[in-house]
Deep mutational scan, measured.
Amino acid sequence: TTVVVGNKKYTFDNPEAAEKFAKKVAKKLGATVHKTNGTFKVK
């Protein structure tokens, strides 16, 4: 599962961990999490 934050990509074996990370980053940046085909995008 990939999490994309700006131009950085983070890969997780565990989708739950990926989602948690994405939400944490989004909260910090005041952004939102978008899920597309198993990829979480923070923007």
Rank of each mutant, 00 (worst) to 15 (best):
Ala26Asp: 01
Phe21Asp: 00
Lys35Ala: 08
Lys8Ile: 08
Phe12Arg: 01
Asp13Ala: 13
Ala18Val: 00
Glu19Gly: 05
Phe40Ala: 03
Gly30Tyr: 04
Thr32Val: 11
Val3Gln: 01
Glu19Pro: 01
Val3Pro: 00
Tyr10Trp: 14
Gly30Lys: 08
Lys35Trp: 14
Glu16Met: 13
Val3Lys: 00
Val25Tyr: 04
Lys41Ser: 13
Lys9Ala: 10
Lys20Gly: 08
Asn14Gly: 07
Pro15Ala: 13
Gly30Val: 03
Lys24Phe: 14
Asn37Val: 04
Val4Glu: 14
Lys9Met: 11
Ala22Gln: 01
Pro15Thr: 10
Thr11Asp: 08
Asn7Gly: 07
Glu19His: 08
Phe21Leu: 03
Lys35Arg: 09
Thr39Asn: 14
Val33Asn: 01
Lys28Glu: 09
Lys41Thr: 15
Glu19Val: 06
Tyr10Asn: 01
Lys27Ile: 09
Thr32Trp: 05
Lys8Phe: 10
Lys43Phe: 15
Asn14Arg: 08
Ala31Asp: 03
Lys20Phe: 10
Lys41Asn: 15
Gly6His: 08
Gly38Lys: 05
Lys9Arg: 12
Thr11Trp: 13
Val5Asn: 02
Thr39Met: 15
Thr32Asp: 05
Asn37Met: 06
Glu16Leu: 12
Lys20Trp: 12
Thr1Asp: 05
Leu29Ala: 04
Lys23Gly: 08
Lys9Thr: 14
Val25Arg: 03
Lys28Ser: 08
Phe21Trp: 13
Lys43Asp: 15
Glu19Lys: 07
Gly38Tyr: 04
Phe21Pro: 00
Lys9Tyr: 11
Ala31Met: 14
Ala17Lys: 12
Lys27Cys: 05
Phe40Asn: 03
Lys27Gly: 07
Thr36Leu: 12
Phe12Ala: 00
Thr32Tyr: 07
Ala22Met: 02
Thr1Met: 08
Asn14Ile: 07
Phe40Thr: 04
Thr2Leu: 14
Lys9Pro: 05
Thr1Ala: 14
Lys28Met: 09
Thr11Pro: 06
Val3Arg: 00
Val3Met: 01
Lys43Gly: 15
Thr11Cys: 08
Val42Lys: 01
Gly30Ala: 04
Lys43Tyr: 15
Val4Asn: 06
Asn37Trp: 04
Val4Pro: 00
Phe12Gln: 00
Ala22Asp: 00
Lys20Cys: 07
Asp13Leu: 11
Lys35Ile: 12
Gly38Met: 04
Phe21His: 02
Lys9Ile: 14
Lys35Gln: 10
Ala17Phe: 08
Gly6Asn: 06
Lys35Leu: 14
Glu16Asp: 11
Gly30Glu: 04
Phe12Asp: 00
Phe12Leu: 03
Gly38His: 07
Pro15Ile: 10
Ala26Lys: 01
Thr39Asp: 15
Ala22Cys: 04
Lys35Met: 13
Asn37Pro: 07
Ala18His: 00
Thr39Ala: 13
Ala31Val: 08
Asn37Cys: 04
Ala26Phe: 01
His34Arg: 06
Val33Asp: 01
Glu19Leu: 13
Lys9Asn: 09
His34Leu: 13
Val5Gly: 00
Glu16Val: 12
Glu19Met: 08
Lys27Ser: 09
Asn37Ala: 06
Val42Pro: 03
Gly38Arg: 04
Lys27Tyr: 09
Thr36Asp: 15
Asn14Leu: 08
Ala22Lys: 01
Asp13Thr: 13
Asn37Glu: 11
Ala18Ser: 02
Asn7Thr: 11
Leu29Arg: 04
Ala17Thr: 13
Thr32Gly: 05
Phe40Val: 06
Ala31Cys: 05
Glu19Cys: 04
Tyr10Lys: 02
Lys24Ala: 14
Val25His: 03
Val33Trp: 05
Val42Phe: 04
Val3Ala: 02
Val5Leu: 06
Val5Phe: 05
Lys41Gly: 07
Phe12Trp: 04
Thr39Ser: 14
Lys24Ile: 11
Pro15Lys: 07
Leu29Ser: 05
Lys8Val: 08
Asn7Ile: 11
Tyr10Ser: 01
Val25Ala: 07
His34Ile: 15
Lys35Tyr: 15
Lys20Arg: 12
Thr36Trp: 09
Leu29Asp: 02
Glu16Trp: 13
Val42Trp: 01
Ala18Thr: 01
Val5Glu: 01
Val5Ile: 12
Asn7Ala: 09
Thr36His: 13
Thr1Val: 10
His34Met: 10
Asn7Met: 09
Thr11His: 13
Lys27Pro: 01
His34Thr: 14
Lys43Val: 15
Thr2Tyr: 13
Asn14Phe: 08
Lys28His: 09
Lys24Asp: 12
Thr11Ile: 13
Lys23His: 15
Thr11Leu: 13
Thr1Leu: 06
Tyr10Cys: 07
Lys27Asn: 09
